[in-house]
Write a protein that binds this DNA or RNA. Structure first.
Lengths: 176, 176
DNA sequence: GAGATATGTCAATAAGGCTGACGTATATGG
DNA sequence: CCATATACGTCAGCCTTATTGACATATCTC
């Protein structure tokens, strides 16, 4: 999983900019650590995806479909915050290669419910495994007592308006 | 600062994949938290950059030049892990808009030493300020005693081979 | 002086985004 | 039952950021 390049609409954010930063120096170390940590975090899946001629976009789609079986197109667009045109190309490839299956909605036949196939689930698990391994190894470098703090820290890095929605989606996600 | 899309060369990495993951479930929560945290972490600078018709590539270049005054082209390419052709377009724009200044090397006149101008420094500081503000706010959600653990965790997320080099560059960086 | 090195540049290509416009199937409300 | 709204699909064109390959130029080093 890798962060999408959100272009175009930048989102209406009100005056969020710190004026003078009264309190001391900028945390350059943490800024750069986060940058490099994320860079390497996504490099593991990249190697696997390259074997299949997939990119990070495929990873994101497969990941969230796998974690949220029956997800509709609209819901997926809302998570990924991309346009349906962008999604379509990637999704078509994942469906064409039988990693994802599309089922017409029962209640509402306009909707498309997305499901990972067996091989889709396997690939998603393989991708999550390499990222999970990196996380596990990193946690080993930190006292177990501090593990909840790391989760709290990452949670607090998420936009407050998004936080609740993100958390509910993460926690409910029962499919491993 | 935002992670580059490393395409093409994926880097020679030896069999790094966890075989069966004997030890239990995958840390899906942390995987997704890291994803969303990073997404929002880069969204703040994006808004500012958009005002100037710059992209994330400009941010990365400006950031590292500002933090490492006198950086050469080759060193910058090594940090960013992109090709000189990719760098060139972005760098030309930053030089053309007078955010970055190029000085021919004294000892070796083939080299180009990059420096942020006054306005380059101001922009870099403004970008770092919004990211720093998010970090500071997130740290406030965590006991101060756990702050070193967060730094240790992020450090351990970086590839072991890269870690030493990255850390030395981060710590020495005296320019805030 | 020959060759290596640091940088610059031209050209073609790809991935992954975007906007705008339009089409189709299905639901839903009056 | 018909009009409108909704969910999705698709065509066309564009942008940014990256890639590879080839070649040019200046400068350093042996």
């Amino acid at each position: 999983m890798e962060s999408p390049t959100v272009r175009g609409k930048v989102g209406a954010q009100v005056d969020n900019e710190p004026k003078a930063r009264a309190g001391g120096a900028l945390p350059y170390e943490l800024i750069e650590l986060f940058f490099f940590a994320y860079r390497d975090f996504v490099s593991d899946p990249d190697r696997i995806l390259a074997e299949l001629d997939f990119g990070r976009a495929h990873h994101r789609v497969l990941h969230f479909v796998n974690r949220n079986p029956g997800l509709t197109i609209a819901e997926l667009l809302d998570i990924l915050k991309i346009t349906k045109q962008s999604l379509n190309r990637v999704l078509k490839e994942l469906v064409g290669t039988a990693f994802i299956e599309v089922r017409t909605g029962q209640a509402d036949r306009r909707q498309r419910h997305l499901h990972a196939t067996a091989s889709g689930h396997a690939l998603a698990a393989r991708l999550a495994a390499v990222q999970g391994e990196r996380i596990r190894q990193a946690l080993n470098n930190v006292p177990a007592a501090a593990h909840p703090a790391i989760e709290a820290y990452l949670t607090a890095m998420i936009d407050p308006q998004e936080r609740k929605q993100v958390l509910s989606r993460i926690r409910k996600g029962p499919v491993g």
